[in-house]
Design a protein around this nucleic acid. Structure first.
Length: 592
RNA sequence: CGGGGAGUAGCGCAGUCUGGCAGCGCACAGCGUUUGGGACGCUGGGGUCGGAGGUUCAAAUCCUCUCUCCCCGACCA
């Protein structure tokens, strides 16, 4: 491709709206443009990268017996009503009406429509298992898109769905997908780790997320160096250190004026935060009897030095979602913000959930539900009992690994892929059944597997760039080679030589971006660094007269010289070396 | 949804407080000189100052309403 004809523009100055590196670089390099919050154009260079990633996705999905299909973006609401997600999902699901007033949705994921399709096509156990995938537009009306292509509203996703006769077959297949995902990210030049994750609204029994580690990541991960335990903070567990048991002392009211935080309380009374109990007030949206939702006040007690993990709480009580309670709501159940405790509240109005560390902790300091007062020596069992006692607190850096006990490390990551064992949630709802050997009707067992291609691109750039621009892995670079001509219009014989090389590279099947623009050398070199193609060839009067083409590796910065009559072979060798490097990053990953 | 910030040419910004011809740099076009790491000179094109309403002789500037975008949080299949 000749840059003089390319539809693109590089920007010297950074658009003010972008403060994430990948976003800035994608805008500056002319890969994408933003149309609205979380909605982007892809320009030719950006689209080439996207296509290359999607080709990798296809190859790896095909390698595990996937078959590509295409499902609609606009879907009838009726499908979503059958699984209950029409009600269960909030404003993230974009809804519209067709001309007849029928409710429709923009597909944010495709479980409903593919399960309906699979149910229609698959009748017999002889047709199972099946792995179907598509590379399709999704629309999720996210409350806050951010970070360029990191979190967007409209995006392209490779979503795959497998259908099995039973759980054993899914369990046997799931590691294949797990491995395929590592292959995909390796081929795209992205280092990832897999962590256990929450199944969330998808339902299901097991899930993994594939995380690119970067400080701009939105998820917090807890990793153990000792044993390779790795989990999203949303579900991470840890070894809880119970305080030594003590004899229960008498409940005692103490005056604590203007002490309405745990830190202030601990300091005021001279006790460690671990000897206090923290009250958290939430309102949960729960499934009601009539298919409508109802609100439930949830009173949570955790030890003062712990944080509530809202995902764990949501899952524990089966809530659709949680929100913090308002001051009025807190007072209505007989509690006092800042001085809350489960002692003396109106138990009929609340669901009382207590972290499992609390019953093991004696003589805690807790609120007295009275402004300016706390109780000392609050003991679970004697002073109050809960509706639920279970793990609802968040793991944090330094906590003990639940597997081996070593301290956990917290890091940030971007979720670039996820895999779920869905089970029969959707097949039952959509009546996607098959007949087994005995002629019995059985719901198919499903798995689902997603990778967002745009977020993958952004993650690669995020982890592979320098102060001059992007550094593309050769596998997904928009072009393999940047041919920079320094010949001026007054040097027609040099121009002719460059054109010859350009033609030879094209004839050799090498993807070459040819900077034939009438620009100064500095402009061309800077644009080449910004665009970040793996190899740069420079041809100018100086080299050509000596029969030399200069080659520079974008990744290493190393320069070398190729003989003018052996450019193609020299370049091929260099490209092969880059490809070999990516292949060599294979880290055999075992699921578990 | 809560908190903070910002909308003036394709991009980066000044001008707004204190109302008085809509500016600067980059980019773009023409001509000339240049030509191996973001050249120089001259000339030129490009604006509903986010939108609507109001105040005023006069509004980018003051007032009211509104839309959009960014960041933090909440949320996130």
């Amino acid at each position: 491709m000749r840059m003089s004809k390319l539809f693109f523009q590089t920007l010297r100055e950074v658009p003010a709206d972008a403060d994430v590196a990948s976003h800035r670089l994608m805008l500056r390099a002319g890969l994408v443009r933003q149309v609205a919050a979380g909605i982007f154009d892809f320009l030719p260079l950006g689209l080439r990268v996207k296509h290359k990633i999607e080709q990798i996705l296809r190859e790896e999905m095909d390698a595990i017996d996937g078959q590509e299909v295409s499902l609609p973006v606009v879907q009838p609401a009726e499908l979503w009503q059958r699984t209950g997600r029409w009600q269960a999902i909030g404003d993230d699901l974009a809804r519209l009406k067709d001309r007849n007033g029928r409710d429709m949705v923009l597909g944010m994921t495709h479980e409903e429509v593919i399960t309906e399709m699979a149910g229609g096509v698959i009748n017999s156990y002889r047709q199972l298992p099946q792995m179907l995938y598509q590379i399709q537009t999704k629309f999720r009306d996210e409350p806050r898109p951010r970070g360029g292509l990191i979190r967007v509203r409209e995006f392209t996703m490779k979503d795959a769905y497998s259908f099995h006769t039973d759980f054993a077959d899914l369990d046997a297949y799931y590691p294949d997908v797990y491995q395929a995902y590592f292959n995909i990210f390796r081929r795209a030049g992205l280092q990832v780790i897999a962590v256990e994750s929450d199944t969330g609204m998808m339902g299901g029994t097991m899930a993994h997320e594939f995380m690119a580690l970067t400080p701009i990541g939105e998820d917090t991960l807890l990793l153990c160096d000792g044993c390779h335990y790795a989990a999203n903070r949303q579900i991470a567990t840890f070894v809880k250190q119970a305080a030594p048991a003590e004899d229960a002392l008498p409940l005692e009211e103490v005056e604590t004026p203007h002490v309405n935080t745990i830190a202030a309380l601990a300091e005021f009374l001279g006790v460690p935060e671990s000897r206090t109990a923290k009250a958290i007030f939430q309102v949960a949206e729960m499934d009601g009897d009539d298919g409508k939702s109802r609100e439930q006040f949830v009173f949570v007690v955790v030890r003062g030095d712990m944080e509530l993990n809202e995902t764990k709480l949501t899952n524990a009580i089966g809530a659709r979602r949680l929100r913090p309670a308002t001051t009025d709501e807190i007072k209505a159940i007989g509690a006092e913000p800042g001085y809350g405790s489960p002692v003396g509240i109106d138990r009929a109005k609340v669901l009382l959930v207590v972290d499992d560390l609390i019953p093991q902790s004696s003589n805690l300091v807790a609120g007295a539900n009275k402004e300016g007062w706390h109780y000392k020596n609050v003991n679970y069992g004697r002073d109050y009992t809960a509706d639920l006692v279970l793990d609802v607190v968040a793991a944090a850096e330094g906590h003990g690994c639940p597997v081996c006990g070593e301290p956990l490390t917290a890091v940030r990551g971007v979720e670039v892929g996820n895999i779920f064992k869905l089970g029969t949630k959707y097949s039952e709802a959509m009546d996607a059944v098959y007949l087994d050997e005995n002629g019995e009707s059985i719901p198919m067992v499903m798995g689902c597997y997603g990778i967002g291609s745009g977020r993958l691109i952004a993650s690669v750039i995020e982890t592979s760039n320098d102060e001059n621009g992007i550094i593309w892995p050769v596998s997904i670079a928009p072009y393999e080679v940047h041919l920079v001509s320094l010949a001026t219009p007054k040097q027609p014989e040099i121009v002719a030589k460059v054109e010859e090389v350009y033609a030879a590279l094209q004839a050799a099947g090498i993807e070459v971006l040819y900077d034939d623009r009438d620009e100064r050398a500095g402009v061309k070199f800077n644009d080449a660094d910004l665009l970040g193609l793996p190899l740069r060839l420079t041809m100018g009067k100086r080299g050509v007269e000596n029969g030399i083409v200069e080659m520079k590796n974008r990744r290493t910065g190393e320069g070398s010289e190729l003989a003018l009559d052996a450019v193609v072979s020299g370049l091929r060798a260099a490209l092969d070396a880059e490809r070999a490097l990516i292949a060599a990053t294979v880290v055999p990953e075992k699921m578990g």
